[in-house]
Simulated assay, not measured.
Amino acid sequence: MRFERREHSSTMLNILAPIGAIAAALIIAGMLIAIAGANVFEAYALIVKGAFGSRLGFSEMLTRATPLILTGLAAAVAFRARLWNIGAEGQFYLGALAVAAFGMIPAIASLPAPLAIFLCLCAGAIAGMVLLLLPLGLRLKFGVDEVVTSLLLNFVAILFVSMMVEGAMKDPLAFGWPQSVPVPDNTLLPKLMERTRLHAGLLYALVAAIVVWWLQARTVFGLRARAAGLSPRAAAFAGVPLGRTLITVACLSGGLAGLAGAIEVMGVKGYVSTDLSPSYGYSGIIIAMLANLNPIGVIGAALFSAVMFVGADSMSRALGIPSYIADVTVALSLLTMLVALFLTQYRIRT
């Protein structure tokens, strides 16, 4: 038995790959649920019911999906150009902190809400850009691997956020709890559903996915970024300005991750704390891979992950199974997706 590279990878095969990967992950996770002594079909039914069976569950699922869409887009944009952005978690936190810091400016509170929201979103996006441009600069100037530098900057960013929320930006009315001062009311995103946490950030995330798809599919920048990812040497030989293209990619990728942090503060929390993100930045990598780096596919992958995370809480309470089964299922989805992507490029010959 040997593996033979396919001459062409069909569109149908690329569509079926993520579906097959998710199905395989659910089957493997179902075995773990069965070992735990629960009915697999009942467990999955409870997960779906927990995410879609009530107004609260549905709104929470969409709220959870919003930052996942943005961090998934951040990873997808970078990976397609072979810029390995592993620092979305730090960019998320720095974007959130930038919003809180920007909101402390007295003039912001007196601005009209649309303008204040726009400026705060820009501040969060710019903060994320800066944090990714640092490792990219080291790569372009000294050949330093951005996987290591962007990953390590996550810890630097989170420690910096911790220092600020426990020091200069600490809320004096938080009874000692380490959190920043709340952002002004005119910077909070409007709610999409009354008496829920679902906010307009979901619409921004969906628009961002469409814009990123358009940039990649219909612009010269998208063509250059794709060429840089397929073969940097060939792209440079064809006249693609690699440095400038990667800087633009870094600005877009880091900006999306920073925007995710800004939206989380302005739409859900209202302040910054060190537990703001349940690993949204790292989950974005899984989302991007499940979507096969397709911006529109990122929406579906983010919704799948959000359904698992929200629904697993309901299933856990009903059956007594740890809710960590959601993390296991999403992680298994990444592994099975890697296998599926390999099989879209190679066929098995005997």
Rank of each mutant, 00 (worst) to 15 (best):
G30D: 02
A43I: 12
V310Y: 11
T187G: 03
G243D: 02
R197Q: 15
F79W: 13
K49D: 15
L133E: 15
L138G: 03
A326H: 10
A157Q: 04
L242A: 10
F142H: 07
T66E: 15
I210D: 01
K269G: 00
G30R: 13
G128V: 06
Y93M: 01
L338H: 07
A208V: 06
P190V: 02
A36E: 10
L335V: 14
F221H: 09
H8V: 14
A301H: 06
I158A: 01
S150I: 09
I28R: 09
F58K: 02
G176A: 07
M308F: 09
A208W: 02
F58W: 08
V339H: 05
I69Y: 11
L252M: 08
I15E: 08
R55M: 00
I285Q: 04
P232I: 05
S279K: 08
Y93G: 00
I35V: 14
E89F: 06
P18R: 01
L223H: 11
A302D: 03
T245D: 10
A157D: 02
V307N: 06
S323P: 09
I86E: 08
I158F: 12
M315R: 06
A78F: 06
S305Y: 07
M163V: 00
Y282S: 13
S180P: 06
T71I: 10
V249T: 00
W213R: 13
T248A: 15
L252G: 05
A236H: 05
L259E: 09
R244H: 11
V330Q: 04
E194Q: 14
G239C: 10
A113Q: 12
F102L: 13
A107H: 09
T336P: 04
I210T: 10
L334A: 11
I285K: 14
A331W: 06
P184G: 06
A113M: 08
L246R: 08
L133A: 05
S314N: 12
F41K: 04
A260D: 13
L276Y: 11
D313E: 14
A38F: 10
